[in-house]
């Protein structure tokens, strides 16, 4: 199931389809993942085909255990597909690298380093040729971008969950990845902090024009943030069930989107997919 640009999009999605005319950026090509177990092989993912274009914001949504984390881990390079391949700009992905930086659900900051040093560790490694002053400037700029200038010298233990995730996002963006991978980044945060960070992520994405692949289980979050919502069927043998185009113009505004009549259509489509067609763990195909 190769997903290509649909030319039937309406005018408000015109800027999106412009993007799609460019060459494929990240290609997930007929990927499956099989884990050997004592009871025989266990197929987590099967026949995954997805093409992500440069600068696109794609959300992957699905029930727990559908293998969406497995998919992202393969894009990040932590796991290898059993069959098929994943290519970034025509280069085969074989191992993790800073070109596909991950923002982990549990932040994964090093507790013995300050926020500044956590970001610095990444920057120093990716730009070894830079002078110390240049790298300090990069770190400062990105901490500023996520609103963390004051907490720069605090250790993660002294920061709130939202603040930690900000540091993690700053760390990821500071090294200019080609693809930013977010694994349920706001799942552990309270609703107010989550909305605040969603909006900041939108703003940052708009400015950086980075390609984003993000796992979420929050439909509203996916509608607000993404250009396309990739909905996964249930595992085992999970695959991409349906892809929703999100036609809202950018920059987006949470309140305006909620008033848009298409919003409920999208939302209901996603809800229907997740809670009617794939509510149970049997394969609907």
């Amino acid at each position: 199931m190769q997903i290509v640009a649909s030319n039937t999009t309406n005018s408000s999605a015109q800027d999106l389809s412009d993007k799609r005319n460019e060459n494929p950026f990240l290609v997930i090509d007929n990927v499956s993942k099989v884990y050997p177990t004592r009871q025989g092989s266990f197929t987590v993912l099967e026949n995954i085909n997805l093409t992500v274009y440069e600068g696109e914001f794609v959300c992957v949504i699905g029930h727990s255990g559908c293998g969406k984390s497995t998919l992202l881990n393969m894009v990040a390079g932590f796991n290898k597909p059993t069959t098929g391949e994943i290519r970034l700009q025509n280069k085969l992905i074989t191992k993790p690298g800073p070109d596909r930086m991950v923002v982990f659900q549990n932040y994964s900051l090093l507790p013995w380093l300050t926020a500044f040093d956590n970001v610095m560790l990444a920057v120093k490694n990716v730009y070894p040729q830079n002078s110390k002053a240049q790298n300090r400037e990069i770190v400062k700029e990105h901490l500023e971008m996520v609103g963390l200038t004051a907490g720069a010298n605090k250790k993660p233990g002294q920061l709130s969950g939202g603040m930690r995730q900000r540091v993690s996002i700053a760390r990821a963006l500071a090294i200019r990845p080609q693809v930013l991978i977010l694994d349920e980044p706001f799942g552990a945060l309270d609703i107010l902090t989550r909305e605040e960070l969603q909006e900041e992520l939108l703003k940052i994405w708009q400015e950086h024009q980075v390609t984003v692949l993000m796992i979420t289980h929050d439909i509203d979050e996916a509608v607000l943030l993404s250009d396309r919502i990739v909905m996964m069927t249930n595992g085992p043998k999970a695959t991409i069930g349906e892809i929703l185009e999100v036609p809202f113009p950018r920059p987006r505004d949470r309140a305006l989107i909620a008033e848009d009549p298409r919003y409920y259509g999208l939302r209901n489509q996603a809800l229907d997919f997740l809670f009617n067609r794939f509510a149970l763990s049997d394969d609907a195909h």
């Binding site: 990040a76 390079g77 932590f78 993790p96 800073p98 549990n106 994964s108 090093l110 560790l121 090294i175």
Partner: peptide
């Protein structure tokens, strides 16, 4: 988690 960070950043 920390090992993953090291892998992504390709720490020496």
């Amino acid at each position: 988690d920390y090992r993953n960070v090291a892998k992504v950043l390709r720490l020496s």
